[in-house]
Nucleic acid binder design. Structure first.
Lengths: 210, 210
DNA sequence: TCTATTTTATGACTACTAGTCATTTTATAT
DNA sequence: ATATAAAATGACTAGTAGTCATAAAATAGA
């Protein structure tokens, strides 16, 4: 009835409020330096209340990161719209990922922080992982584009498409992770992030060409 | 004089004892689940003593990981000995890295854990980073092999060798990191680690071919 | 409107652990 | 044997995730 529905709506709204507050705190201080007290203060609730809605600090961060993953998926899907070969679309997806990181580094950092977390700290099932990777992430789209590229005779077919797709996804994710999480490394080694990214795309796309 | 030298030797020996004990604990429980009390118990010293030799838990782990990096460097350098083109040697380096991870996953995990650590938790300078990457790691060797490959006309020269080398290093490191740190991901996605690794090497080496 | 029950929220408390430091023990110098 | 320096100790502090007994607010029913 109406009251139960309203209460459920309010519960979801409260949950969203907590996620938004957490996002603010995590984005400004990073996951490790943020405390549940910080977040409680930001959302103006007691710390105990956070644990009514989330299992743990990691669980709350994961909710924040999933929002980020959804947004990243949106911009990379949008980048594949319009004309061009599968290879070109894959290139555009990669660059859209980089641009996403450049324009919203804190958001990308939240995705990478989730990526770095130990699975047992997250207490998620194999099914959860599959959903996250195949439905919320961009692997599925990469897979489709690789299959299309094989059909277009532009992408090599001697390596199974699903292996190519996963390898692509892992390497792009990783170089973006270096750029996002280790700017100091680039400074220390006197490397240009842009050049490394371009070099990476060039070599990886060249590597899958037929 | 003799006494001062003996005391210095004993100090270094004590330091090595602590590192070995830490290695045992970190390898069996992982960095995050290990406590300084665990390590103190293993080495049969008081916790306060650990802080006479190391700045922090992360500092101690770094000492453990540096030993691992040195061993990895040794086996990958050995893999480049003997005949073959620069490309073949690069391939052998990559496979030696994978084999190292397979035969001593805890050791590789210690390297990857260091890699994932936030630089400010480690309080190391840019010079330290340069030393670690260029003198203790394998980037230097990769750089030389890429330059040799360009001379052999087997590796493309339109992308500067140092960018190729760093890109190679980052991508190999990253796929090995997935394999080392996220076995659950492979299970969840029903992927073969070996196939992903072979696919990765195939595509990346193909990508740098002239 | 009042009372009982359910739901939501609270914040003091517990448990844990990195790191510290006043004190003790051991080694060295005189 | 005594004074001093070096090495070691482990109780303690500080911080924080997570808990839970209790309170407050909302709802149901008479």
């Amino acid at each position: 009835m109406g009251i139960a529905e309203r209460k459920e709506r309010e519960k979801q709204q409260r949950r969203e409020e907590i996620i938004l507050a957490a996002e603010k705190v995590f984005f400004s201080k990073g996951f490790h330096l943020s405390t549940m007290d910080d977040i409680a203060e930001e959302v103006e609730l007691s710390k105990g209340t956070l644990y009514l809605y989330f299992k743990s600090k990691e669980d709350l961060h994961m909710a924040v990161a999933r929002t980020s993953i959804r947004l990243l998926r949106e911009v990379t899907l949008k980048a594949t719209e319009g004309g061009g070969t599968a290879l070109e679309k894959l290139g555009r997806m990669g660059r859209a990922t980089v641009e996403f990181s450049r324009t919203d580094p804190d958001r990308m950092r939240s995705i990478m922080t989730l990526e770095e977390m130990e699975p047992q700290a997250l207490s998620i099932t194999a099914g959860d992982v599959q959903d996250l990777i195949y439905k919320e992430s961009t692997v599925g789209t990469v897979m489709q584009l690789v299959e299309l590229g094989v059909k277009e005779k532009l992408i090599r077919e001697d390596v199974p498409a699903y292996l190519v797709a996963h390898t692509l996804w892992m390497t792009v994710l990783s170089v973006v992770r270096f750029v996002t999480m280790k700017p100091g490394l680039f400074e220390a080694l006197e490397l240009s992030q842009d050049q490394i990214l371009e070099s990476h795309f060039e070599l990886v796309l060249n590597g899958i060409k037929s």
